[in-house]
Structures are given as structure tokens and as C-alpha cells.
Amino acid sequence: MTYHWNWGVLFEPSPEGTGTYADMLLSGLAWTVLTALGSWAIAFGLGSVIGVMRTLPSRAANAVGAAYVELFRNVPLLVQMFLWYFVLPELLPARIGAAVKQMPDAPFYTAVLCLGFFTAARVAEQVRAGIRSLPRGQALAGTALGLTVAQTYRFVLLPHAYRIILPPLTSEFLNNLKNTSVALTIGLLELTARARAMQEFSFQVFEAFTAATLLYLAVNLVVVAGATLLERRLAVPGGR
């Protein structure tokens, strides 16, 4: 093997002139985390609404929810990314489309929207499964007490369902975090993109990728630790 390791490269200034290569990777990490959090907010909110729609007795609500899930699950994320970034501005009225294209940080906002809508379909499936796993009597009991449908979901069904699906939601959160790297194709300067740039500038390919790998693993560990804490805090005494 002829590869020459040089870990010192991380502390050499990057040609961008804004700091060292390590700074460059860390700024990539910041964009990755920011994008993951922003898109998760959309995914969690929208996914909960769609998931609830799929458990309502209304046929129309069910059909809309099912169509949403199928649409966003059966098109590759990269294609969705291109649709949001290249196609959507063209389909908007010309003036709005032009404004969207010139927006600063357009790749960031596009990635947040794209990942949010994409992950919402997966969150919706989990929420639906969580609600379906509750005994039917729970909804009946809420209704019998005079709670409205919305109140029954808000106070009885959802708090219980979220606790049940916390582990799969954690893995969806991690998937969403990893998926932010797909946004490098539309120019988001997230962690993988920055590692790639470092490799191109410095030719120290394995230092760049190893550092990025370690950063991803560190974020993973933080998320898993956070989820464990959350699970412990939300645990119901006497619950299974």
C-alpha cells in the first residue's frame, strides 16, 4: 500500500481561506444537523397529520393519506430532490419561480422541504401503526366521556401511540439525518460534501472520509443517547 497518511492536514488552512480543514468539516456538520432538525420538524408534524388521517373512519381522509404515503415512498429521494430544486421553480408563476431561484441558501431550504415531505410519509406509517396497535376500547372510552374526535386523539390516542413508536421514530430520525447527504447533489454544503471538497483540495482522501465518518458516528451516538433518555422520561410507571 502506498497511501501516505497525514492527519496534520486537518489543521492546515483550507484554500477557502475561512479556517482549517477541520473547521470546514465542522461547518458541514452544522449544516447537516440544521437540515436534519428543520426537516424533522416538518416530517413529524405533517407525518402525524397524515398518519392520523389514515386511522379516521372517513374514506376520503384515508385515501388522501394513502396517496401521500405511496407517492413519497415510491420515488427515489434523489429524484424528489431534483423535482423540488430544478422542476418546482419552473412550474410556479414566472415571477415567484425566479425569486425562489435567487433566494440565498436555496439548497438548504429546498433540502429541508424535500426531506420533510419525504420523511413525513415514513413518520405517517409509524403513527398509523402506533394508533392501530391501541385497543379499540381506548377511543371508545374517550368518546364515551364526551371528548370530541380531536380531543380523543390529542389527549388519549396520540400520547400513548408516540410512546409505543418512539424506537422506530428514533431510527426514522437517524435515517433523515443520513439522508441530508443526498442534498449535496443540489449544492448543500453538508458534511459529506465538505469531506469530498477536502479530498479534492488536499488529496488526503482517507483523512477526510475518516473524519466525516467519525462525526456521523458521534451524532448517531448523541441521538441514540438522547432517545434513551427521552424514553426513560416518558416511561409510564407500571407500563409494559
Binding site: K178, T192, F209
Partner: peptide, 16 residues
């Protein structure tokens, strides 16, 4: 390890 990393990064890893 594989499941913790983005596929895009893994693609670059192996490519190089």
C-alpha cells in the same frame, strides 16, 4: 457501522 453512515458517503469511501 454501515447502518450509521449515509449511503452517499459509503459510495465515496469505496470509490476511493
Amino acid at each position: 457501522l454501515m447502518r450509521a453512515l449515509p449511503l452517499v458517503l459509503v459510495i465515496f469511501w469505496f470509490y476511493f
